[in-house]
Design a protein around this nucleic acid. Structure first.
Lengths: 128, 128
DNA sequence: CAAACCTTGACATGGCCGTGGTAAGGTCGG
DNA sequence: CCGACCTTACCACGGCCATGTCAAGGTTTG
């Protein structure tokens, strides 16, 4: 059998055994398994665990964010959607609404209200 | 004054006024302000809010993740660090540890134990 | 001016995250 | 064979996230 057991790996990397299991459960750094099911950490994993620790320490992020970054890279569709939304920051749909979009939106607003006017005070009390 | 008020914007976009404020507080979609401080949503913001809603609905992510994605793009240092860690997935430091890294690590382990041996049972009871 | 809107700020909730602990049971090494 | 280790599964707890709700006070408008 080659590779450190989970407790040994925990010690050399600075995590706890518990966290090593957790880290594995969220898809970052998974260990090999011995025939009987014991986790075995090789040099690659150990290094990875150490750098992960550094990563979290230096920047203000958590395991969750790293996991999300991983999703971003493994799900190109998601990546594309998010990226597009982010770059869309200042794009105004002039082409869609000619000039008086405002009145348009407000009229729609009125229409919506009209449809909902059933309550007493008619007060627009957070009509969610 | 041009632009929808927060309640109007909430209605046409499907969010609640509360959430519009929250979304602004975390840096996504911020509205203009009238002289007296009222939030004013223009067509660009409205569109953005709608697409944001779609984004969250279609993929399984939350406002937090979008915020993080934004950080990734605005903090190149962070981006680089995370990206590097992620791509590092299978890189083994053969160059660092010649061949018997295992024994090396295990000896270090022993040394650590030796230094800590003070308790009674010496049991390696999760020596964290 | 009064009603209905807006502002910020604070408190409250339910759910998930990171973590620890423990129990029931298999494995390994002297 | 026994003690120390490993496994999974569960419960627990504090913290933060996403929301709601309310209070105190300004603004807009019929």
């Amino acid at each position: 059998m080659d590779g450190l057991t989970i407790a040994e790996a925990a010690q050399t990397t600075g995590w706890t055994a518990r966290m090593l299991r957790y880290i594995e459960s969220i898809g970052l750094v998974e260990a090999e398994r011995s025939e009987s099911g014991y986790r075995l950490y090789g040099p690659a994993q150990l290094q990875r665990l150490r750098t992960l620790r550094e990563l979290l320490g230096e920047h203000d992020i958590g395991l969750g964010e790293v996991g999300f970054a991983r999703r971003l890279r493994s799900e190109p569709k998601l990546r594309a959607a998010v990226d597009q939304w982010l770059s869309d920051t200042a794009r105004r749909p002039d082409d869609v609404a000619p000039a008086d979009w405002l009145r348009f939106e407000q009229e729609k607003h009125q229409r919506l209200l009209a449809d909902t006017v059933i309550g007493p005070t008619t007060t627009n009390k957070e009509t969610a």
